[in-house]
Amino acid sequence: MLSEFVNGLQTTQEIDNDKFDPARQQDIMAKLGILLSHNATKFSLACKPPRQPQDAIRMVKEMSDTIYRLIGFYQEIPLNAGKVYHATYRRKVQELLRATHHLCQTFLPEDKKEKASFMVPTATLWDLCKTLNGLPASNARAVIQEWKLLMDTLKDCKEEVHNVVDNGVDDFEGEEDAVPLEGEALKVAKRCAQLVDVTVFLFRKIEKCFDKQDVTWLDNVYDQGKRVTDEADVLVSEIYDAEPNEMEGAVKQYAQHVTDLIQIAQEAINGADAKIFEMCKTKLNEIITAA
């Protein structure tokens, strides 16, 4: 049953609800997390030997009721709450269902002489329940949380590509026998480093504007930001593997993804920040047209 619920949570709820309160949703889910944590404790104590069937049955029912309530409140999240907000809650509920399923499996009859301890899956479920208190109370907060993860990836890309440019080799993963880049390959690597530098700067500027924007813009800017980050990871990883002429195409493609992100940002951001975005566009053009 729990496995079926996990698979059933893959789809987004095709409903809209202008009265939906994401902050209230966060509060309810946090309280249900506390309740599920208590359920898990009592369930484990009721099921461990010497156990009484009636005690285990009662606790299975109590834990099931909490699971149903978690799923029910999750399914009330409408589309207009935000895709990132919705996806964050879906992942968390799926993690809870998998952890609960794992805990229940611990008490199933087995032929093994040494049965796995129930304490590890119980502790795992406890920890997951605690994280419900950290769920975002709005789509803006959800995007901010996910954006920080994107920034971490970009910072890794920046460190790696500058290692190549500054040292002539990629020793980011301890490849001491790597052949140093030189000539056109090194020139392309330097342009990649410039592109990633602009991207990190751009991401920081966009992040400062999240709290002021609507749900649709936040979802769009995150989707494109995720695309840019994925492309940055690919771009930097291919510096050693691809020929310089192939990297030229990759540089232009990556710059276009960053430009698309700037255009989305400019749809909602004006004033001094808008001028900064235009400056970033100009810098991108200079990088991709550099000889």
Results as ranks from 00 to 15, higher is better:
E114H: 04
K92S: 07
E114N: 10
P109N: 06
T106C: 06
K112Q: 11
I71Y: 12
F73K: 03
Y74A: 04
F118H: 14
K92Y: 08
T88C: 00
E95M: 13
T122N: 05
A123Y: 10
R90Q: 13
Y68E: 09
Q75V: 02
P109E: 06
E110T: 12
G82V: 02
Y89T: 00
L103C: 01
V93Y: 06
T88I: 15
G72L: 08
M119V: 15
A116K: 13
T100F: 05
H101L: 05
P109I: 11
L96W: 08
H101M: 08
A99G: 00
L97E: 07
H86F: 12
F118Q: 02
E110S: 15
F118Y: 14
R98E: 11
Y85I: 03
H101F: 07
M119D: 14
L125H: 03
Y85G: 01
K92V: 06
Y68W: 12
R91W: 01
Q94N: 07
F73R: 03
H86T: 10
L108S: 10
T100I: 09
R98W: 09
A116C: 01
I77V: 06
E76Q: 14
T122S: 04
L70M: 12
Q75N: 15
G72N: 14
N80F: 03
Y68D: 12
M119A: 09
A81L: 02
D111G: 12
A99K: 07
E95F: 06
E110N: 09
G72R: 08
P109M: 07
H86G: 06
F107Q: 01
K115I: 12
M119S: 14
C104I: 10
P121D: 06
L70R: 00
R91M: 11
Q75L: 12
A87C: 05
L103G: 00
F107V: 00
Y85A: 01
K92G: 02
P121S: 02
V120D: 09
G72I: 10
N80G: 04
A87N: 13
H86V: 02
K83Y: 03
K112M: 10
H102W: 13
D111R: 13
V120K: 14
K92C: 05
T106F: 10
P109Y: 12
N80S: 04
T100L: 05
T100V: 07
P78V: 09
E114S: 12
V84L: 02
